[in-house]
Design a protein around this nucleic acid. Structure first.
Lengths: 239, 239
DNA sequence: CGCCTATTTGACGCAAGTCAAGGGAGGTGG
DNA sequence: CCACCTCCCTTGACTTGCGTCAAATAGGCG
């Protein structure tokens, strides 16, 4: 997740010099489809992407989302065939970089390779927490938890703060993240509002009491494995 | 997952020459606990391990299991603090290898590093499928799916076949994998039996019709990202 | 202004959870 | 070798969180 920021200037420069092709995607458009064999990975320059899997019955599960600076399909470096679809949650622009160039870069800059590996490991840690969330927590906590993660990760990407942020998901999409129906999501959100834990109007989210929401969502930030630098960034920008 | 088998002899030898300490764990014993800062990773030599997360309310979610040849906590190489607990599902023996030695090995044998990275990516792919399973599929399919994955992965590890295998989990543990209560697991297993999809007596599992069970569980093996070699191994040993 | 998509509300049904109480199979010790 | 103990598994009765169907309302945006 935003692994770039744990690197030194020369390393970041090297990444920027990678051959790349910039493309934009409309909301809902697929960037990589399940079953694809890709020869390049991409970094999100703007917008939010979701990784989705579909069951045989046609039900959709969003397994993770990514924001500016993230590299959603880095795993395609080693896993030939995509096992899920990455698509744009809102209008996105991304930069594709050929696998070959990335691998060559990794050879020249071992620390970049390490940072990339680490970033895929953090995605794994998020996945584990989501599985706990979906498997064990009741709807209200699930939603609160998702909101917490979203706010933190958006803030790390320079979008919004802990007290005022944006939810780039429709209620149906929230349901697809959490294994809930959209109607139930709606009613649960209303309860969160009634309890004074959030104020939410359309996509604008306000959080009157950040600590209270974290508790309601059983949210412990540890699983995001933030670096020293990221943790400071969070604290410093906390009003 | 069993990344060793995609390597050449000299590479495997180098891994075997790693300094290591062998230890055994009783069923239920923790090998790594959430919050631990470890300085070594381990490979499973015998038995089955589970990675578990616990919610604030005390509910347990098994997020992945590992069998002989797997390296459950390779991610500790880059993520200092364990975000989940790894424990023995049955009596286990494992070999601990210091991080330093592993990293040095990675420098000398880049292909080992790649294989290790890849193996953590496959774990991620399994996680995604589990999230889909728990989030979207009804209890019966969830269980059938889990059984399918278990049988395949055990078989790859040289344990059991597609038609006769062993389930190293109690019904309660199956429930913890799937976000289901143990009573419901019990009733669903009975339905699978009534439908002739499985025969299960204690831990001994027989599968009369492998294809039928796969369909019942909406199981598509693609997400395991088997190597050429693994795929051949599966086919060759099919009765 | 009017269409389209997202949110909201209501009524009803069901899959899965919970509580409580047997039953069986292995292991252990006397 | 039997008796007991301890896990698991099984069964029954009841509850509930969440899903589903259907229809109304409310914002964006062309």
């Amino acid at each position: 997740m935003q692994f770039v920021f744990s690197l030194e200037k020369d390393e970041r420069d090297a990444i920027c010099r990678l051959p790349h092709k910039i493309r934009s995607f409309r909301k809902g458009q697929a960037i990589v489809s399940e079953g694809d064999r890709t020869t390049s990975s991409f970094v999100v320059l703007d917008g939010v992407t979701s990784m989705v899997k579909v069951s045989g019955a046609g039900d959709r599960q969003i397994v993770i989302f990514h924001v500016v600076g993230d590299t959603p399909d880095l795993h395609s470096l080693y896993l030939q065939k995509a096992d899920s679809t990455v698509s744009a949650l809102k209008h996105c622009t991304v930069a594709f970089m050929p696998h070959k160039a990335i691998l060559a870069l990794c050879d020249n800059f071992p620390r970049i390779k390490d940072a990339m590996w680490r970033s895929t490991l953090v995605d794994g840690a998020i996945l584990r927490e989501w599985l706990l969330n979906v498997g064990q927590r009741p709807a209200l906590k699930r939603i609160a938890h998702l909101l917490c993660e979203m706010v933190v990760r958006m803030k790390l990407a320079g979008l919004g703060t802990t007290s005022a942020s944006v939810v780039p998901l429709t209620q149906e999409e929230i349901g697809d993240c959490l294994g809930l129906g959209s109607i139930h999501v709606n009613r649960s959100l209303q309860k969160l509002r009634r309890d004074g834990l959030i104020r939410l109007r359309r996509t604008a989210l306000e959080i009157p009491d950040w600590r209270a929401l974290q508790e309601a969502g059983d949210f412990d930030i540890a699983y995001l494995h933030l670096t020293e630098r990221q943790r400071h960034y969070l604290e410093d920008s906390d009003n």
